[in-house]
C-alpha cells in the first residue's frame, strides 16, 4: 500500500507541476498588429487626407506670396483659403480679359513695349494654372475628409488639444471629428495609418456590451492621457453620460479596452504633444458594422 501511495502522490505532484507550468496563465492570443492598408487601395489615387491637406497648404502659401501685384486680395484673406483660391482664380481671369484689350489701345504706336504686357498675361496664365490645380485638390480633400470622418469618427474621434483650433486647419476639415491640431500650428499631425493602427488595436480589446436595450446607440466618450511610451498616464475618464442603464457597462467596457490595450506604441514620439491627450469616442454601431 505504501508504494502505491507514493506512486499516486508522485503522479499528482507531476500533474500539478505540469499544470502550473503549462497553464501559468491564459495564453494571450496576440495577433500581429494589422498594418493598415494604404488608402490608395480603397480610394485609388488619393493620399491620406491629412497629408494632402498639409501639402496643399504649403503649396498655396508659396503661390500666394509670389503673385503679390496682381492678386492682392489673396494675401488679406489668407486664412480662408477656399474663398481665396476662388477669388484668386477669378481675379486673374478678369485681368486676362482686360489686359489684351487695354494694352493694344494705349500703346499702338510704340511696338517696343509690347513684350511688357505679354509676360503679364503669361504670368497670369501660370497663376491661373497653378491656382486651378489646387482647386480640385481642395475639393477632393474636403470630400476625403468627409468620407474619412465617417469612417474614423465611428470608433475614434479625436478632438484637438486646447490649442488645436488654429486658423490654418479649421478650413481643411471644419466638421471633421478626427481633426487634430498642434498648439503651435505646425503641420504636426497624426497620420491616418497611425490612427488606423490605434483604432484596430483598441477595437481588438473592445468588447462592447451586447443585447442591452438600445445598447447600440450608446456612444461613450473617453478622455485619455498617455505617457511618452504609450502607456496610460492616468485612468481614462468618461466625459459624457447618458441616462440609459446600458451606459455604465458600455463605459466600463470602453475603459477596460483602453486599459487592456496599452501601451500604444504606434505613435511617433516626436509628436507626443499631439497625441498626449485625446478624447476617444466608442460607438458600437461601427463595431457591429451598422
Amino acid at each position: 500500500m505504501r508504494t502505491s501511495v507514493i506512486i499516486s502522490s508522485l503522479l499528482h505532484v507531476g500533474i500539478l507541476f505540469w499544470a502550473f507550468a503549462g497553464f501559468t496563465a491564459t495564453r494571450e492570443f496576440k495577433a500581429n498588429p494589422v498594418q493598415s492598408i494604404p488608402v490608395e487601395i480603397l480610394s485609388p489615387g488619393e493620399f491620406t487626407k491629412l497629408k494632402a491637406g498639409d501639402k496643399k497648404e504649403k503649396a498655396e502659401k508659396t503661390e500666394v506670396k509670389k503673385p503679390e501685384p496682381p492678386v492682392k486680395k489673396v494675401n488679406k484673406e489668407k486664412p480662408k483659403k477656399k474663398k481665396a483660391v476662388k477669388k484668386a482664380v477669378n481675379a486673374p481671369a478678369k485681368q486676362e480679359k482686360k489686359e489684351p484689350v487695354v494694352v493694344p489701345k494705349k500703346k499702338k504706336a510704340v511696338e517696343k513695349p509690347k513684350p511688357k504686357p505679354k509676360p503679364k498675361p503669361k504670368v497670369a496664365e501660370k497663376k491661373i494654372k497653378k491656382k486651378v490645380k489646387p482647386k480640385p485638390r481642395a475639393k477632393k480633400a474636403t470630400n476625403k475628409n468627409n468620407f474619412d470622418a465617417d469612417r474614423i469618427a465611428a470608433l475614434l474621434n479625436k478632438i484637438p488639444d486646447a490649442g488645436g483650433n488654429d486658423a490654418q486647419k479649421a478650413p481643411i476639415a471644419p466638421k471633421r471629428q478626427v481633426s487634430r491640431g498642434d498648439p503651435r500650428g505646425r503641420d504636426k499631425t497624426i497620420s491616418v495609418s497611425e490612427i488606423d493602427a490605434f483604432r484596430t488595436q483598441i477595437s481588438q480589446c473592445w468588447n462592447p456590451p451586447i443585447g442591452g436595450l438600445g445598447a447600440d446607440r450608446i456612444v461613450v466618450k473617453v478622455r485619455i492621457s498617455l505617457n511618452k511610451d504609450g502607456t496610460l498616464n492616468r485612468p481614462p475618464k468618461v466625459v459624457n453620460s447618458m441616462s440609459s442603464t446600458s451606459f455604465l457597462p458600455a463605459a466600463d467596457s470602453a475603459t477596460r479596452a483602453i486599459w487592456q490595450c496599452q501601451p500604444y506604441t504606434m505613435f511617433t514620439p516626436e509628436r507626443y504633444n499631439v497625441w498626449r491627450d485625446m478624447v476617444l469616442s466608442f460607438d458600437p454601431r461601427e463595431m457591429y458594422g451598422g
Binding site: 500500500m1 508504494t3 502505491s4 501511495v5 506512486i7 499516486s8 502522490s9 503522479l11 499528482h12
Partner: peptide, 13 residues
C-alpha cells in the same frame, strides 16, 4: 486533492 491522491493509491494497489 488529498482524496484524489488516496483514490489513486488505492486504485494502483
Amino acid at each position: 486533492l488529498i482524496s484524489s491522491v488516496w483514490c489513486w493509491a488505492i486504485i494502483l494497489e
